[in-house]
Write a protein that binds this DNA or RNA. Structure first.
Lengths: 230, 230
DNA sequence: GTCTATAACGAGATAGAC
DNA sequence: GTCTATCTCGTTATAGAC
């Protein structure tokens, strides 16, 4: 086998894999993740369903690939936006990442629903999704760490007794150079950020919040202050 | 027709309606809202699908009934929990409502997914869901209003210019006796609360936060402080 | 080795005739 | 209201093309 022949095969495989995922994403938008069907994807591509198994060993593996792609797409949006303001003050960096996440979610509501919405019945995400899923969180951690190194930031109030041990464990696991007070608030703020985004994407702000961009920026800024950024 | 006969018929109708909703909730848990099917519900109840249309004119109407029930169940949990601490300090009242919402969501994850998770493809909730959906939010507003009347609480920092008009509109619409600064933060905190709850219910805290009750209480307390409660 | 197609399984949904 | 014929689905075994 020559290198070019192998290259052609590999390229074809990548193309077909991408076409399958594109069509699957189309169906995700139309019917939801629960109704994603290998057969329908194959039909739309003019393939036979059994041929898909060369690319994805099962329907769940296709779902997993879509989930990882979505997390990576979100993560890349956030990282790219952050890179453009990497030298700015930490509050701006934090808010920029939050706004990038919001912008991605509004632009890709169905993929957002796939990763942060209701679990798909009968599907359980494998551990291989963890690195992609962690990207936004790691970015937020890095911003807070940076701000502390540059001696900016404020000290957070002490933790309640019943949270201290757990917060120390979380700090040891994810950011051993940050105080447990900060890590506990960081994780809470991370989930609160996706509360704000989810409510907007899923329509809970309908007729409630109209001018959403300044509303979100204000909330994201408050989250930044909450983790000690100034 | 005698009154007793009419009463019996009305009672039977209520019973069958409840049985349909119970079975539909069972299917919600097993297959998700997207796959909820009137036929399957009818089959499980030993009825014929056409008979269901006497109780719910369409699948969407059954879904709407389940959504309103879920919001009401959550709202009642929160209101009951709050009533037990109605005379306590506002922070405890706020945290109690938050913990009641979390407890309800953990006890009814599929109904939680129905109201705060991914939208059901092809379904749009009618305005009749609004009163039930508002109950928790109205409770949180009432706690903040009460605290301000009793002269407790702190003043919030002024709003950014680009949010002032929208915040004044929101205040006029939902809580004209509260300052716009407070209303904007209240709505954000309400959505952040369901970010915390959703991440736990939907598994995003898996292997990340282990001892979740003190973690949640701490986060809810911080939200209370954020809206000015002390 | 790599891929696609045919055919089939068992399970479940569905539409229409009766 | 019931029954049946015909669809869907995920998945696998197998055979053959490149």
């Amino acid at each position: 086998m020559s290198n070019t022949a192998q290259g052609a095969r590999a390229r074809a495989r990548i193309e077909v894999t991408a076409a399958i995922k594109d069509e699957a994403r189309r169906q995700l938008a139309a019917e939801g993740a629960a109704k994603l069907s290998l057969r329908a994807v194959a039909r739309a591509l003019g393939m036979v369903s059994s041929a898909l198994y060369r690319y994805f060993p099962s329907r769940d593996d296709l779902l997993t690939a879509l989930i990882i792609d979505a997390y990576d797409s979100l993560g890349e949006s956030a990282e790219t936006a952050h890179a453009a303001v990497a030298d700015a003050d930490p509050v701006l960096r934090w808010v920029t990442v939050c706004e990038a996440a919001r912008g991605w979610a509004l632009a890709h509501p169905h993929e957002y629903a796939l990763i942060y919405g209701s679990p798909v019945p009968g599907y359980s995400a494998p551990d291989t999704t963890v690195p992609a899923a962690s990207r936004v969180g790691l970015l937020l951690i890095a911003i807070v760490r940076d701000a502390r190194l540059r001696a900016g930031g404020t000290e957070l109030p002490p933790l309640p007794d019943d949270l201290r041990a757990e917060a120390e464990r979380m700090a040891a696991d994810f950011a051993s150079d940050l105080p447990p007070e900060t890590v506990a608030v960081l994780i809470a703020s991370w989930s609160e950020l996706f509360g704000l985004i989810g409510f907007e994407v899923f329509g809970q702000f309908h007729r409630l919040v109209e001018d959403r961009e300044p509303f979100f920026r204000h909330a994201a800024t408050r989250l930044a202050h909450g983790v000690g950024l100034r």
